[in-house]
Design a binder for these strands. Structure first.
Length: 386
DNA sequence: CGGACCGGGCTCTGCCATCCTA
DNA sequence: TAGGATGGCAGAGCCCGGTCCG
């Protein structure tokens, strides 16, 4: 929605009055910005950067300083905003304050995403209402705003946002999914409708190519398992799938099952990262005497192994092997790799202390919650023979 | 009743490049 | 043509507990 110039002018007009009111007696600090710009520049200097055509809006800088905005950061991020004649920082301030955002956070939001101050009250109110379609409480929105101002403010197109909500709902994502989606990957809702549609079509195509009978369900499954997918490029997703297929010789149906199941999560890794991780995993496993089939089996049953970086994975495996666990056991119960190396190390020590026999009892005990693990240890201490 | 199986919860921005438009 | 809008990228796992089954 376009900002109404008339309204902006009025807001601008009242700017200093309102701010004086809001901030009381806070001193204005304008030293740096008041220094004459041309003081040091020789008129004949050929390599000197051209003086700015539009200088910063001084009264805006004054306001931002009063609000506690990190102007240096703001200038670094979006210098153009500071030169604008008409902005709405006061309106934004009051709007956010009305939503329960404190002064410090508002300052931080503007510092990180200065363009926020170019949005009109009407725009802000409308956008907020649209977000409220998905969030029950203002405080939820505030949390995200604080976390990622850009997600909320980057687009000025509320109509597009509305269409996105309709579109995403039409995919069969229920209220809970939408909520999770907007919480986790708010950028999705600032994407153009077209971009989101392209990703959905891309996923549908992939499903169809792999012989899937229900592309709609596939899309839904992938999105709800990987909430970041819609903020990735289709190129990235495509390339990852192609690479997976090529390196592991998956059949269509194997790949389809993987992707709509646990494999959805690794699709949004960067292409190089996934490739590197695969290569180093392969190398590591080969060095431990595994066959290609073992690697395929591991990735099929536990694709998240590809999420783990080379050094972490290597130390995790070494730690398990040193603790007396075999590669065969890991291949049978790959979920133990889910836990941090620290955690595994600690548990291995505990188990060693009570004389736990992995050959006899298996390694499932490593794949359990802390609570359950401790309960088990207690029991073993009480009756070590078991 | 203990343990295995399995799915789900958390979680992700801030920057740069490029195209678009007033 | 500056500034706005938008696309895309790098970065890199861990943990819990319900439920079912022998």
């Amino acid at each position: 929605m376009a900002v109404v110039p008339g309204l902006r002018a009025v807001i601008s007009l009242h700017r200093s009055v309102t701010l004086q009111h809001s901030f009381g007696l806070i001193k204005v600090q304008l030293r740096a910005t008041c220094l004459p710009r041309r003081l040091c520049s020789a008129p004949t200097g050929s390599d000197e950067p051209k003086p700015q055509v539009n200088p910063d809006n001084q009264s805006l800088l004054e306001n931002l300083n009063l609000m506690g905005v990190d102007v240096k950061m703001a200038r670094q991020r979006q210098p153009g905003v500071l030169r604008k004649a008409f902005t709405n920082e006061t309106g934004l301030f009051q709007f956010l304050q009305g939503k329960g955002v404190n002064r410090k956070i508002i300052a931080s939001i503007i510092s990180r995403y200065p363009r926020a101050i170019t949005r009109s009250i009407a725009h802000l109110e409308q956008r907020w209402e649209l977000w409220r379609n998905i969030f029950k409480m203002d405080s939820e929105i505030v949390t995200i705003l604080e976390r990622s101002p850009e997600s909320f403010f980057r687009s000025s197109d509320n109509g597009n946002l509305e269409k996105n909500i309709v579109f995403l709902s039409s995919l069969g994502l229920d209220a809970k999914d939408l909520h999770r989606l907007l919480t986790t990957a708010p950028r999705t809702f600032s994407n153009s409708l077209e971009l989101n549609r392209q990703m959905v079509e891309c996923l549908e195509d992939i499903c169809a190519e792999l012989g899937g009978k229900n592309p709609e369900q596939f899309v839904k499954a992938v999105i709800s398992r990987n909430l970041y997918i819609l903020i990735r490029s289709t190129k990235r997703v495509r390339t990852n799938i192609d690479n997976l297929r090529a390196s592991l010789k998956f059949s269509d149906s194997e790949l389809l099952a993987l992707l709509k199941g646990p494999g959805a999560e690794i699709l949004d890794l960067s292409n190089e990262y996934l490739k590197n991780n695969f290569n180093s995993l392969q190398q590591k496993m080969m060095s431990l005497g595994c066959q290609k089939a073992d690697i395929k089996k591991l990735i099929s049953s536990y694709p998240m192994v590809l999420y783990i970086g080379p050094s972490t994975l290597s130390s995790k495996l070494d730690c398990l092997l040193r603790g007396g666990i075999t590669m065969k056991q890991i291949l049978e119960k790959p979920k133990v790799l889910d836990y941090s190396t620290q955690n595994i190390m600690g548990r291995l020590e505990e188990l060693k202390r009570v004389g736990y026999d992995f050959q006899k009892n298996g390694i499932n005990i490593l794949d359990s919650s802390k609570k359950r693990f401790l309960a088990k240890i207690e029991k073993l201490r009480a009756s070590p023979d078991e």
